[in-house]
Write a protein that binds this DNA or RNA. Sequence first.
DNA 1: GCAAAAGTGTTAGCAGTACACCCATGA
DNA 2: TCATGGGTGTACTGCTAACACTTTTGC
Lengths: 214, 214
Amino acid sequence: MLLVERGVDPYRGARALPGGFLNHAGEDILDAAHRELREEADLDVARLHLEQLGTYGAPGRDPRGRVISVAYLAIAPELPDPVAGTDAADAGWESAADVLSGRTKLAFDHLRIVTDGIDRARGKLEHSALATAFCRETFTIADLQQVYEAVWGVQLDPRNFYRKVQKVPGFIEPTGQERRATKGRPARLFQAGPTTVLHPPLVRPESTDSEGAR
Amino acid sequence: MLLVERGVDPYRGARALPGGFLNHAGEDILDAAHRELREEADLDVARLHLEQLGTYGAPGRDPRGRVISVAYLAIAPELPDPVAGTDAADAGWESAADVLSGRTKLAFDHLRIVTDGIDRARGKLEHSALATAFCRETFTIADLQQVYEAVWGVQLDPRNFYRKVQKVPGFIEPTGQERRATKGRPARLFQAGPTTVLHPPLVRPESTDSEGAR
DNA sequence: GCAAAAGTGTTAGCAGTACACCCATGA
DNA sequence: TCATGGGTGTACTGCTAACACTTTTGC
């Protein structure tokens, strides 16, 4: 996940989610989320899934006063090194396991927000076709399989996954192209299809523990 | 769903979701949702499922100026006749189908909020044990089946549903009591169990059309 | 007894899993 | 020609839908 190191008080030096305040009274909150992501992480909007996660408005969550934060969950492939922004001394990618376990300390109630975001991402991955958002424009079935294996820490049979994922109508579409790796038979390339909701889920996690994230 | 008839401009006379502004700067947004529900609908918090739905902050959504609304989804059994509140000329229960079809006009962007709420409720019903929130403290398996049949407009086999729902660990728990109807064998009474997430879903809808709601 | 609703047993079919096998490529 | 990853065929198994059947009540 993308975190910034706070350069100003409060919580100076601690890690925090990238974010900020509305620019002016007329700015849409979704536009503001895009803007902050662009300013603090230099993330392009292409191939970027962005959905509202939730709103956090407990009275004491910010020592500066009453702050109500609308959190957005973003998922994107290809991870560029983010650049330091205006009020961020440093920004960089962090392992989700490090944050969830408490090894990386977060400012404000951002650990709670991160926990909610991971839960949402897991649920979305399971019940929708969101997994393709982790892949490039075109991808192989093995690429897609790696997404599912990374998120839940499971090992899937490539042969069964290969057919299962193609049987879901509208999930992925073949492009006719191939990708050659250093070894082995070339793999067919696919792109995301129009389907967004999956019945039934492709994978069903056995235990709901908080491990398995990378 | 619960709607109020607006007594003040803008949209005077139109239907709207119950709601209002924060009382004071220190009020928690969840507390405010509870308060508005109590004030405008006289709804007790017992047996009330209340979860955040989303935040709506498009610049032009309220002609009075910039208003950011945090919407909450509430689900409860037993529907009392709500009483008129402070800024609501009239409040009452409305059919979801009437609202979704456009027969009942809603103020602001509340139709969008309602649509999101129905979608959320359907998804939650399918993947979680939320269906018991529509039932009383104790209920029969047939009661629970009616919830699923009403939400998706499907017809389920009572015999298979009877066993399927009992096989899910922690979903429902027998109370040992029975309920006698006018005819037929008495039914065993159950109560909600600790489980909140269901793998796999009890029912899987075939089509995602917008009908089937009552 | 009869109708109606609750609850049980049984079976065919289907979908998921496991794995043997074949295919196409680089070295 | 061998190793490696991609792709196909197939048997086994566990779950589910369908439905015959039994139980318990009110009338």
